[in-house]
Computed example of a mutant assay.
Amino acid sequence: MRDYQSVSHTTRDCKYHIVFIPKRRKKVIFGMRRKHLGKVFHELAAQKNWQVVEGHLMPDHVHMCISIYPKYSVSYVIRYIKGKSAISIAQRFMGKSRNFTGENIWARGYLVSTVGLDEERVRGYIRHQEKEDEHYDQLKPGI
């Protein structure tokens, strides 16, 4: 039986696989910044009663499986997470306390896919992302 969530008149299971990258796909997610971002993503989700079901931070991209309420659009969720996390990074690692204009940490685009009935498969893919990337690199010609 699936794990459905419900409120007074709605039963739902809205999970999305989201991938986004830093500006110019620079490898900037490592060390203390990686630990900080993991905590920030979970805190931001909790503020809106969303849940990060699975997540993995690679040096040059973020994979996340997130469960949200249907009243929020996916674009809103991604804008919120990317915007607030960029402010948090600027405060913590760049010494900024306000006036965040021009702080472009994340690239504009993103990938989103509905999870549906393949949740375990998607969670496994996210969990083993480093192995998936190694496999992909081996398939590239000329490496």
Rank of each mutant, 00 (worst) to 15 (best):
G38C: 09
K48E: 12
R127H: 14
I126D: 05
V115H: 02
Y16W: 15
L139M: 11
G83L: 03
K140G: 01
G95P: 02
G95Y: 05
R92D: 00
K39Y: 08
V40F: 01
L57H: 02
F100N: 04
R127W: 03
H9M: 08
Y76C: 02
S113N: 08
M64T: 09
P22H: 05
S88R: 05
G109S: 13
L37C: 05
F93I: 06
Y72A: 09
H36Q: 05
Q51S: 10
S97A: 04
C14N: 13
R12T: 15
M94L: 13
S75V: 12
V122Q: 00
E132Y: 08
F93W: 02
A86H: 00
A46C: 07
C65K: 00
G102P: 04
I18G: 04
G109D: 07
G83A: 03
P22Q: 10
Y110A: 01
D60R: 03
H61R: 03
L57Y: 05
R34V: 02
R92E: 15
E130V: 06
Q129C: 03
K39S: 09
H56Y: 10
T114I: 08
M64C: 09
K82E: 00
K23Q: 11
V28E: 00
Y110I: 03
Q91A: 05
F41L: 14
G55Y: 13
L44K: 02
K15D: 08
G31E: 10
H128D: 14
K23T: 13
C65M: 14
Y80E: 02
E119Y: 13
Y16C: 04
I21K: 09
W106S: 06
I87G: 00
R12K: 07
G31C: 00
R108Y: 06
D3R: 15
I89L: 14
M64V: 13
C65N: 07
I81G: 02
E130I: 04
E103F: 12
S75A: 12
K96H: 06
S97L: 03
K84F: 06
Y4H: 12
Q129H: 12
V7K: 14
